[in-house]
Amino acid sequence: MDTDSLNIVVTVARLGSFANAARALDADPSSVSRTVASVEAALGLRLFQRTTRRLTVTEEGEAYLRRIGPLLEEFDLAREEARRIRDEPSGTLRFTASVAFAHECVVPHLGEFRERYPALAVELHPTDANLDLIAAGMDLAVRLAAAPQGDLVSTRLARTRYRVVASPDYVDSYGPFTDPRQLENCDCLRFALPDFRTRWRFRRAGEETVEVPVSGGVLISNALALRRAALDGLGPALLPDWLIRRHLDEGRLVDLFPDRECAATDFDTGAWALYPSRSFLPQKVRVAIDFLREKLRPDSGAIPGNTDCPAP
């Protein structure tokens, strides 16, 4: 039996008749009577004594109703609280992103997010591992890739682009760089992902894509550390635009091939929001996605050149 049926039984007991309960519930009296009979049959108890003139609660009915009344109130309160959390940005948002993305594109905006949604607490879990969102109890993840695969729901927050960069001192020593094939003779700084460590891809309008084999004595598994090595003049590195834009603007890094698109895998990559289910999307997840998309707009400066994407 369900709580709706039990609430009908409680209403009948409170109002003293099927007719009164039916009017209060905007239901047919025969439907109310059938529901009560079904509950009694399931319990194996007679909850009401029925006569042509009146309906009274039995002794066992009184005992049963006395126990379930408070429980039904708790069910109603729990349902309302769950709906409030769903509809209002409150509770706790458990959120994961790569270490570098969290450092560069999330943490700088946490203060504003908390000011905007003071009832919403944030648990941020920066990690370069692809967590199982459901097993880890995460509400939301940001992944950096081409279109994500799998069962999770995804929506693109922003487009991303990769650039090959080096420090001005390195360019002075080993440049100028005019052709990506020059990298074959460089001691490159490589990211420790299989697709990033052996070849970089370049293309320019009207020309075929060029794949350049790369090698080097430094292999780094963290994008922030890879950027640091490039800033220190250790060699060229393939890095995402959101991680290096400020350093390019300040002249601390040089874009070696500004007239070419660069990639390790796909030229069309992005920052994607992933979450477990589209059904009953909690408001806390929705406002977080909208906030991140707002901060990653082209005019925000966080990720230049991205395009707006539709809301989930």
Rank of each mutant, 00 (worst) to 15 (best):
M1G: 11
S5D: 15
S5I: 03
G16V: 01
S17R: 09
F18I: 04
P29A: 01
R34G: 00
V39W: 07
L43V: 08
L43N: 11
R50Q: 10
R53Y: 09
T56C: 01
V57K: 03
V57T: 10
T58F: 00
E60C: 09
G61H: 06
A63N: 09
A63P: 00
A63H: 09
R67Q: 09
I68H: 04
L72R: 14
E74Q: 15
E74I: 08
F75E: 13
F75I: 07
F75C: 08
D76F: 09
L77I: 12
R79W: 07
E81L: 14
E81A: 15
A82K: 15
R84S: 12
I85E: 14
R86D: 15
P89R: 08
G91T: 02
E104K: 14
F113C: 04
R114H: 14
R116L: 14
Y117G: 00
P118V: 05
V122E: 01
H125D: 13
A129G: 02
N130E: 10
L131G: 02
A135R: 12
A136I: 02
L140T: 08
P148H: 12
P148K: 09
Q149V: 12
L152E: 01
A158N: 02
T160L: 14
R161Y: 15
A166W: 11
D169G: 13
D172S: 14
Y174L: 07
L183H: 10
E184H: 00
N185K: 14
C188G: 00
L189Y: 03
R190S: 07
F191G: 13
F196E: 03
F196K: 00
F196S: 06
R199S: 15
F202K: 12
A205E: 14
A205T: 09
V210W: 06
S221I: 00
L224A: 02
A225S: 11
R227K: 15
G233S: 01
W242R: 04
R246K: 14
D255L: 05
C262N: 13
A264F: 11
D266H: 15
F267S: 05
F267Y: 13
D268E: 15
T269C: 13
G270M: 08
A273R: 06
L274F: 07
L274A: 11
P276W: 12
S277E: 11
R278I: 04
F280E: 14
V285L: 05
R286F: 04
A288M: 06
F291H: 13
L292D: 02
R293D: 14
R293A: 15
D299L: 05
D299H: 06
G305M: 02
G305F: 02
C309I: 01
P312R: 04
